[in-house]
């Protein structure tokens, strides 16, 4: 008999998290926490630090949405998801949004019924090989053994690339980055393939990073971005514009340092609209007027987030490349705030 009480108590604990309301925004507000799905750990994008606090590029998006909706960057419950569990977690309502380097594809949009609200990182699948292998191009890899980190679109891109170049390979699917790295370093595979950003992050932690090269081919388009469920467009709007606010802030030169000052009012009407000193944009989204200002003050603009987490001054050392602002020849472009 005594055993059953654990169950009931747990049920109380488990179910207490639930709340029935019409929209996701109301759910989040009622709960006081945003449930945000992230990876189980990818340096630079989402990983807990030594104190257990989640940090990273994707984490910043979660925190931005939490700031916009709840006004507190710590009001986020980070839910680690794997490649298998992420879509069910989102579909079943366990998480409110997914910010987990997930590639935007048609089938995920139409078949799995998710809405990608934008792109926060333009990635592509690349290859890493030891320098002494003497490979200059991925097209030289005929007959090579390839370690693949499973769980994204990697396997499919790889198969397409080798098939279209009419060369053969031996795939070794590996579940975690740590194990893939071990196999690669021990020579159990010739090349390691995953998203180029992940490769750079992995190589940065090697004992001798200079002994390894990233091959020039990028074999796929991987627009990674946050996504939400179909059927709640209001919530989708909030996530979309939280991301866009960070992007626009960089474009307009608003940083975490000068946001407070600028919010007092400037000559640029778009800055004023973004920071809430003019117009009613926040109200239209169902948020406070200073929602975007809060995001920028706590998380910084897109450029700051990039530099702090994965930029050239971090261990990962990614250059902006495609992820520069459109004004600098990149693809990062936000629709206007008006």
């Amino acid at each position: 008999m005594k055993k059953s009480v654990i169950f009931s108590a747990l049920t109380i604990a488990g179910l207490s998290a639930s709340a029935a309301a019409a929209g996701t925004l109301d759910d989040v507000k009622a709960r006081g926490k945003l449930n945000c799905g992230v990876t189980t750990g990818l340096v630079g994008f989402a990983a807990p630090n030594a104190d257990g606090r989640w940090e990273g590029f994707d984490v910043a998006v979660c925190r931005a949405v939490a700031v916009a909706t709840l006004g507190d960057e710590n009001a986020v419950e980070f839910v680690p998801t794997t490649g298998k569990t992420r879509f069910t977690a989102l579909a079943s309502g366990e998480i409110d949004m997914l910010a987990r380097n997930t590639t935007w594809t048609l089938s995920r949009d139409a078949d799995l019924k998710f809405t990608f609200v934008g792109v926060n990182y333009y990635d592509g699948q690349g290859f890493m090989a030891p320098k002494d292998l003497g490979v200059a191009s991925a097209k030289d890899l005929d007959g090579a053994t390839v370690c693949i980190q499973t769980g994204t679109t990697t396997e499919l891109n790889l198969a397409d690339f080798f098939r279209s170049n009419n060369i053969s390979y031996e795939p070794v699917p590996i579940e975690t980055n740590a194990e893939a790295q071990q196999q690669y370093l021990a020579g159990a595979c010739d090349v390691f393939t995953t998203d180029a950003s992940g490769l750079a992050a992995t190589r940065a932690t090697f004992e001798n990073p200079a002994d390894h090269v990233l091959l020039p081919e990028i074999v796929s388009k991987e627009p990674l971005g946050p996504l939400v469920r179909h059927g709640d467009s209001e919530w989708g709007d909030i996530v979309r514009w939280s991301l866009n606010a960070m992007i626009t802030a960089e474009e307009l030169g608003i940083t975490s340092a000068n946001a407070a000052e600028m919010s007092a009012g400037t000559n640029n009407p778009e800055i004023n609209r973004l920071l809430g000193s003019e117009g009613t944009l926040g109200e239209m989204l169902g948020l406070s007027a200073d929602w975007a200002k809060n995001i920028i003050m706590t998380q910084g603009n897109y450029g700051e987030v990039f530099e702090n987490n994965i930029g050239e001054n971090t261990a990962i050392g990614l250059s902006r490349g495609l992820n520069s602002q459109w004004t600098d020849g990149g693809l990062i472009y936000s629709p206007p705030f008006r």
Partner: peptide, 25 residues
């Protein structure tokens, strides 16, 4: 395997994912 950080989850996930201990096995 289902993304809970038990002892093995920690060993395969966050600890080697931190830059300091990447490669400890």
């Amino acid at each position: 395997v289902i993304s809970m950080f038990d002892l093995i989850g920690m060993i395969r996930g966050p600890i080697p994912a931190s830059p300091d201990w990447n490669g400890v096995y």
